[in-house]
Design a protein around this nucleic acid. Sequence first.
DNA 1: CGCGCTCCCTGGCCGC
DNA 2: TGCGGCCAGGGAGCGC
Length: 274
Amino acid sequence: MPELPEVETVRRGLEGPLVGRRLARVEQRRADLRWPFPEGFQARLLDRRIIALDRRAKFLLARLDDGMVWMIHLGMSGRMFLQPRPAPAPGRHDHVIVETDRGDTVTFQDHRRFGMMDLVAESALARHSMLRELGPEPLGNGFNETVLSARLKHRRTPIKSALLDQRTVAGLGNIYVSEALYRAGISPRRLAHSVAGRRAERLVPAIRQVLQDAIRAGGSSLRDYVQASGELGYFQHEFQVYDREGQACRRCGAPIRRIVQSGRASYYCGGCQR
DNA sequence: CGCGCTCCCTGGCCGC
DNA sequence: TGCGGCCAGGGAGCGC
């Protein structure tokens, strides 16, 4: 899926076509994604005007003119993109299609259906079960070495797992955790509590920089992800460790290792990361 | 409570 | 070429 940089790229790409626009047509093509759509989803979106398109962690938040927020999560394989004109007939995995009063068509496509959508009152947003426990935005002011250390200090799990946990810091996923740990010179196997302090001082800028670099590149295009415009991001060409098992570390030449932690692959250089 | 494993789903790829 | 097994960017829910 889309991790923070991919979601942010989609947000930027859709902001122009969607913000200020009224949803003149809404087509919900199945009853559920990961979970059922909220009651009356299609009718409640229809004719609403989108007043802002924001992002929190990996969620897109479309603010509507009736005080509701259209929450969108892309899961592992979700895409949200602007269609060319005229829009082609919907495909098998095109689950939600909206058309604005300017005639732009935006499609939500998700072949694995791990994504989700919800409609929630702005006033209740912070209490939503999927948002309520999220940690700080890594690119925001609330994320620094003190905050990260406090969140790692009591954790007995490997740092890799702690960073995938959205309560620690919100928006990292499997790719950018591996890449950030490489940049910080920290082994994914190191226990989280031992990263609190000096190592967290390296990790914070490593996380910020890898996310910023990826956003600048338009995200990473692997199997599924495309930008809102349909263009490919190119950060995958800058991966130092992710999906590079057996290839030489670009810094020290040692072969990149792949291990499995909490059921997910981790990639790292045994020479550069301790 | 905190942690790790399994599962949800479809499709691509690899080896036989 | 066909088929089975494995793997994939996420996260909830369960058992230990």
